[in-house]
Write a protein that binds this DNA or RNA. Structure first.
Lengths: 356, 356
DNA sequence: CGGCATATACTCACTTTGAGCAATAACCTC
DNA sequence: GAGGTTATTGCTCAAAGTGAGTATATGCCG
């Protein structure tokens, strides 16, 4: 837990409502007619060479298939814990057995803008981030690996700044913020105006790009009606872009938001916890490790410094073997030194992006 | 999420259970006889001079009052969002209007060790961290401010290493880990043995103290049966300490665990996000700011370097006024520069503890 | 007015970063 | 099989950041 944690707060809610019942005794009261259902959602990320991938299942919605994260309801009778329930659903739907998994966030405001159909149970969804090493030999019984950046084309800077940002996103967001009638923030409690958020999210106006703000960027696009999910939920802002293309591939329900949370968290955590190694084989070269980190961060790193950081930080140890056919001089193979976890408080790949 | 975010993962669950129903279609099935209830819990932290405090309500349990966090069930009909529900409950129970609030974690395994009373709804609790400036003029209509370190006496190192660690905690944990029959970790999926966890948590064996591992320490004590809550849940390990005192004041249900999560997250976040200012008045001296940070971190900081960090980091700006009667030379008053949020990706009080 | 206590300014050695240069060693191609 | 390609590996260097100490300023109190 050293630096960065939550890192990914959801937008604040607005004014509290009037509340009839008072005191903790209400805790024992059964919930009303609209029952609560807890959905467990897994953003399972892997990395094949330098392609970060997300495991999706196809979900038919109005006769049109839509990508979804593996998910299912939490059933206390069957699932001993939340995470056990998640693992069960993932195994059933995809045949994959999860390794590392961590809880991300509990989203309760899904359907905030949907029609108030009180017959359906109110859904609260808990998002998880899971990491799996890419293994072509393990056959999936369901689901497909999809490139993460197909859902967030503006997040991959490895071939330079994505053109979509300056060509499409910034112009449309600029138009959107000009439409704002007042200077006040959209969300009560948030100290930021639309203009400030544009600067922070997309690094306009000299502000630098922060690769960890994946969720903030997605939510900004959502509020501006620039992603398909916003139109689906009937956001007003979506109407003005009628006919123009939306940004990135859409997903079922709020799953793309969960994926954004997952990517943001992973990008943050990779710098202070040795989580990359969950994506690597037991033995790897330093270049393979670097390529994986770069794939997650979406930017390039300075090779020699990366090497120094990882080696002097005690994160890896040489196995004694080498890998040939790398295209050049053979590379020493390394393995993760799990002892670092005991030695240092925040052992991660503390890296800073460069622009080459 | 720059550094540290989740920071506070709950222990992994064990083996998944067999699952009858397959596929996301089950999502539409209503949950079974034991309904799910979502509890919203607020760890509201403030800081009075150099005393970090937590707002508690008294909860009668078996004719004995027990400290509890303000809490209540999430009722979708009444509460538009999870956070709105939380704010309503807190206002109703204590009269306090929350400022900053962020979600911490969703705990689903409460009652894992309790008797399997399937008539009660299964409770899932969502913990929140809230920060409020200390204001003696605002009267509470319920609840009391309690010193945070009464619940975690081992976490306050400002007067040196707490004696309870070497005198009580480490000896008993050492005895507990000797009782372990195998070398394997207690929890499947966790790579740490009991001995490793003792080292990591309490800095024995030359490992250094990590002030952010508040939750990990509490959970270790819980598993070893050294906190009252463990005995209450009927943990086996608790039996062996019969008659010996338990560590720290107990709380209702899993509320102390939520408080541990809150303190750990706050300690992490204070270093990379300007959250301290949520605890300060509009104007403050740098020494007051330092005292507050120290109170949260539970350790002392180097005064001159703290000053340099905070000023050169652009976190504050002088108001032009001074505060006299500080006991010495008058101190310049400062205010928070909220513009930093736009300028730098991770503006926090990046501090390192010293030992003076 | 002198001593005290705190605030504030400045110095300095040491470590950590960001970035580049150079040499090495296999493989590939002609 | 010689030379080019590509990636690994070792090294240097300046700039910035960090930990810790010293000196001066300024109000309060007796």
């Amino acid at each position: 837990m050293s630096r960065h944690d939550d890192v990914c707060a959801a937008p604040n809610s607005n004014t509290p409502q009037r509340e009839g019942m008072v005191g903790p005794d209400a805790m024992t009261e059964r919930s009303g007619p609209a029952a609560i259902e807890i959905g467990l959602n897994a953003a399972i990320i892997t990395c094949a060479k330098d392609n970060p991938q997300i495991l999706t299942v196809r979900q038919p919605v109005d006769d049109r298939p839509l990508e979804a994260l593996p998910f299912g309801p939490f059933t206390p009778i069957r699932h001993r814990t939340l995470e056990a329930g998640l693992r069960t659903w993932v195994a059933d739907q995809t045949g994959l057995h999860l390794g590392y998994a961590e809880q991300l966030y509990t989203f309760g405001d899904r359907g905030r803008h949907a029609r108030a159909d009180d017959n359906e149970p109110h859904a609260v969804s808990i998002g998880y981030l899971a990491l799996n090493r890419f293994d072509e030999s393990t056959a999936l019984t369901g689901g497909h690996w999809q490139g993460v950046y197909a859902f967030f084309p503006w997040e991959d800077w490895r071939s330079g700044k994505p053109e979509i940002i300056d060509d499409e996103i910034v112009p449309r967001l600029t138009r959107w913020l000009a439409d704002q009638t007042s200077d006040r923030p959209d969300v009560a409690g948030s100290p930021f105006s639309r203009a400030d958020r544009l600067r922070m999210c997309f690094g306009t106006d000299g502000t630098q790009w922060d690769e960890e703000k994946v969720l903030e960027r997605y939510e900004l696009l959502f509020e501006a009606g620039l992603v398909e999910e916003a139109a689906r939920e009937g956001r007003d802002a979506a109407a003005q872009w009628d006919g123009l293309p939306q940004f990135g591939r859409a997903m079922h329900l709020d799953h793309r938001r969960i994926l954004a949370t997952a990517l943001g968290r992973l990008r943050a955590k990779i710098k202070y916890r040795p989580v990359v190694f969950e994506l690597m084989d037991a033995d790897f070269t330093l270049f393979e490790l670097q390529k994986t980190v770069e794939a997650i961060l979406g930017s390039h790193l300075h090779k020699q410094n990366f090497r120094r950081l990882v080696e002097s930080g005690g994160l890896v140890e040489a196995t004694g073997n080498v890998r040939t056919h790398t295209g050049g001089r053979p590379a020493k193979l390394f393995r993760f030194r799990s002892e670092v976890l005991l030695e240092r408080p925040a052992p991660g790949v503390r890296v800073h992006a460069t622009l080459n």
